[in-house]
């Protein structure tokens, strides 16, 4: 190898080839998709970039799966990033997506304040932004598909109150309170339950959103409070952990009211089994469909609603079968369905 490069002519040839290759690469990328300044974008391929908070949760993982499938079906290009719940990482993700020249940016904001510089960067680059989950503190966006986690928490716990007949002991198993959705759901629930003087929240342990931690915390709570009537779980995994804790303590979960939020496949399966009273489902499928629909509209220049509330649908034994169908989950056995 050395001897080859010692020959002057070989070196020159190599240099020449490298130079022309570099020029070619630069030229191609400059005139490729995303490099033109054509205003009417409908004849360019739609490249969607979606900045997720965190893909380790089943909810977001399901959503991403559906978005990817829908994008492929419609011939869009799709790329997703995740920030492990770190706002600084999310900013980096957004910058990277902008560099990658997406022509539509979808953002699940971890922190409504921290995300603003990212939105502004996209604005400067002329990339339309669709915000999900919650309203940012600044920046321009075409559409906001938001969850009202406070309302969801309230809806869930008003159902708890209803099923308890306005009287009973409730455990509020929250997610990590430094995650806004977890905090808002918890606040919504506790504010709602304050309306019922006969209802007492006997414990509010914080979990890390996992089934393992929820099972452990619920078991600990059951040591102190032997007669818990209901559990509000900050997400389905938490609720499932609480159900498991009941079972292990010799308490039949079917005799208790357990309500949570998310509508994951595992959650709906538990509703089907009769152990899980109700899940407030924000179907990732539905959200993915709305996102894709909004993206297509923006891309073809059609108008979109500025703010769209993403509804959380209560799913219990009454409507479980229909819900499973909507969600597209492969659940086969559903004994508790009415």
């Amino acid at each position: 190898m050395n001897s080859m490069f010692q020959r002057r002519t070989t070196r020159l040839t190599f240099a020449g080839l490298t130079a022309s290759l570099s020029v070619a690469v630069v030229a191609c990328s400059a005139t490729g998709p995303g490099g033109s300044s054509v205003k009417d974008t409908s004849d360019r391929q739609l490249v969607i970039g979606h900045s997720y908070q965190d893909l380790s949760s089943p909810y977001f993982a399901d959503e991403r799966k559906v978005e990817k499938a829908l994008a492929a079906k419609n011939g869009y290009s799709y790329v997703a990033t995740q920030a492990s719940n770190n706002p600084a990482t999310q900013l980096t993700d957004i910058e990277n997506l902008i560099s990658r020249k997406v022509n539509l940016l979808v953002i699940d904001a971890i922190d409504p304040n921290a995300v603003v510089p990212g939105i502004k960067s996209a604005n400067s680059a002329g990339i339309p932004v669709v915000m999900l989950i919650r309203k940012p503190a600044g920046g321009d966006y075409r559409s906001l598909v938001y969850l009202d986690s406070i309302k969801d928490g309230a809806t869930a716990c008003s159902e708890v109150a209803k099923r308890l007949g306005g009287k009973g002991k409730v455990v509020n198993l929250t997610g990590p309170l430094d995650i806004l959705a977890a905090k808002e759901r918890s606040t919504g629930c506790t504010n709602e339950l304050k309306k019922y003087p006969g209802i007492e929240i006997v414990a509010s342990p914080q979990t890390d959103f996992t089934q393992r931690d929820a099972e452990q915390k619920m078991t600990d709570v059951l040591q102190v409070h032997h007669d818990v009537d209901a559990v509000f779980g900050g997400n389905d995994d938490i609720a499932l952990g609480a159900i498991r804790a009941f079972t292990s303590a010799g308490i039949d979960p079917k005799t208790k009211v357990v309500i949570g939020i998310d509508g994951t496949q595992a959650g709906l399966q538990a509703v089907c089994n009769g152990t899980y009273t109700q899940s407030l489902a924000t179907f990732p499928v539905k959200e993915a469909e709305i996102v894709m629909d909004t993206a297509a509209k923006i891309h073809t220049g059609k108008s979109v609603q500025k703010e769209v509330l993403f509804p959380a649908v209560p799913v219990n034994a009454d409507n479980i079968k229909a819900a499973v169908k909507t969600a597209g989950y492969p659940i086969t056995s559903c004994p508790a369905a009415k």
Partner: peptide, 16 residues
Amino acid sequence: LFVGRLATASPLTGTG
């Protein structure tokens, strides 16, 4: 043991 305890295997069981 965790799987036996939770009746589930979750990608999140080992968190932390």
